[in-house]
C-alpha cells in the first residue's frame, strides 16, 4: 500500500516540486575543471618519469650497470661513468647543510611556538616565510662572494691531517653552510605549524603535572607534532639534495668522492645543470648520462620520502 504525495496534501497547500530547479551546468563544469587541475599534476609527474626512464634505458644500453655503480673517478668525457663520486658530492653538502638546518630549524620552531609572545611571533613568522622565498641564486652569490672567501681566510689550518688544508676558492663547506641557513626557514616554518596544531589541552595537562616549559616543549609538544616535524625534515632534505644553483656556484666542479668540507665537489644536480647547459651533442652517451643521473636523483628522493613515511608511521603520536 503506497501513499503518494498528492494523497497527503489537502486542498489548501500548493503542489510541491522537489525536482532540481535548474540543470546546474555551471557547477558541473567547475567540478570538471577542478578534476582536470588535480589530474594534471599527476599526469605531468607520470610524464616526467616516463621521459626520464626512456633515456635512462638508452643510457644503460650503452653503459653497463656494473660500470655506472662501480666506485671510481667520474669522467664521462673519457668514458668513465661511475656515478659514485657525484652521489658522494651530493651527500657531502646535504649532510653538512642538515647538521646546521635541523637543529637550527627545530630550535627556531620550538622558540616560536612555545616561548615567543604572540606579538613577537606575528612579526617573526612572516619574516621567516619571506626568507623561504629568496631565490637560490642570491644565496649562491652570497656563498661564492662572501662566505667562501671568509671561511677560506679563517680556515683552521692548525688542524691535523686533511681537515687542516686550506680550501680552494669554491668548496663544499661554503655551499653547505649557506644551504643550511637557507633550509632553516623551511624546516622552522613547517615544524612550527605542526607544533602550534597540538591542542592546548595537552600543554595544560603537562603544566598541571609540574612540568617545566622545556619539558612541555620536548616531551609533549614535539612528540605529538612529530609527523609534521619529520615532514619538515624530509622537505628540507629533498630541497638540499635537489638544490642546484647554490652548489653550482659555490661548491666547485671537481667530482671528488669526498666527505671533507674543505674539498671541492660536484653534485648530481650541478653535473646535470653544467652538462645540459654545455656543448654536448644530442644522442651521445654523455647526453644520456644526464638522464641516468637524474634517475638516481629521483630514486634517492623517493627513497628518502619512503623512509620518512615509515618513521612517521612508526613513531607518530596521534592526538585525534
Amino acid at each position: 500500500m503506497s501513499t503518494t504525495l498528492s494523497d497527503v496534501q489537502d486542498g489548501e497547500t500548493p503542489p510541491i516540486n522537489l525536482g532540481p530547479s535548474s540543470s546546474r551546468l555551471g557547477e558541473k563544469a567547475i567540478v570538471g575543471w577542478l578534476l582536470l587541475c588535480a589530474s594534471l599534476s599527476v599526469l605531468i609527474t607520470v610524464g616526467i618519469v616516463a621521459a626520464l626512464l626512456g633515456d635512462t634505458i638508452r643510457f644503460f644500453q650503452r653503459v653497463p650497470l656494473s660500470e655506472f655503480f662501480r666506485v671510481g673517478q667520474w669522467a664521462p668525457w673519457q668514458g668513465d661513468f661511475p656515478v659514485f663520486n657525484l652521489v658522494m658530492g651530493t651527500l657531502n653538502i646535504t649532510m653538512y647543510a642538515l647538521i646546521i638546518a635541523i637543529p637550527g630549524g627545530l630550535g627556531a620552531a620550538i622558540w616560536l611556538s612555545e616561548y615567543a609572545s604572540n606579538r613577537t611571533r606575528k612579526i617573526v613568522k612572516p619574516v621567516i616565510e619571506v626568507l623561504e622565498g629568496v631565490p637560490t641564486v642570491a644565496y649562491g652569490l652570497f656563498a661564492l662572494l662572501f662566505i667562501a672567501p671568509m671561511l677560506k681566510s679563517v680556515w683552521p689550518t692548525w688542524l691535523p691531517g686533511k681537515l687542516g688544508q686550506e680550501p680552494e676558492l669554491q668548496f663544499a663547506g661554503a655551499a653547505a653552510l649557506v644551504m643550511g641557513v637557507m633550509l632553516i626557514p623551511t624546516i622552522a616554518s613547517i615544524s612550527e605549524d605542526a607544533m602550534r596544531a597540538v591542542p592546548s589541552g595537552l600543554r595544560q595537562a603537562a603544566y598541571g603535572l609540574g612540568s617545566t616549559k622545556m619539558q612541555v616543549a620536548l616531551k609533549v609538544v614535539v612528540p605529538a607534532a612529530l609527523s609534521g616535524i619529520v615532514a619538515a625534515f624530509v622537505l628540507g632534505i629533498s630541497r638540499g639534495i635537489g638544490e642546484t644553483m647554490l652548489v653550482l656556484m659555490a661548491a666547485g666542479a671537481t667530482p671528488n668522492a669526498s666527505l671533507w668540507p674543505n674539498d671541492s665537489v660536484l653534485t648530481m644536480t650541478a653535473f646535470i645543470a653544467r652538462t645540459a647547459g654545455g656543448d654536448i651533442s644530442h644522442g651521445s652517451t654523455e647526453y644520456y648520462t644526464i638522464f641516468a643521473v637524474g634517475s638516481v636523483l629521483f630514486v634517492m628522493t623517493l627513497g628518502m620520502n619512503m623512509i620518512a613515511d615509515f618513521f612517521v608511521r612508526r613513531f607518530r603520536e596521534t592526538y585525534e
Binding site: 595537552l202 595537562a205 603537562a206
Partner: peptide
C-alpha cells in the same frame, strides 16, 4: 589538576 575534557597525552 584534572581537566574538563579528558586530555591524555598521545
Amino acid at each position: 589538576m584534572v581537566f574538563q575534557k579528558p586530555n591524555p597525552f598521545p
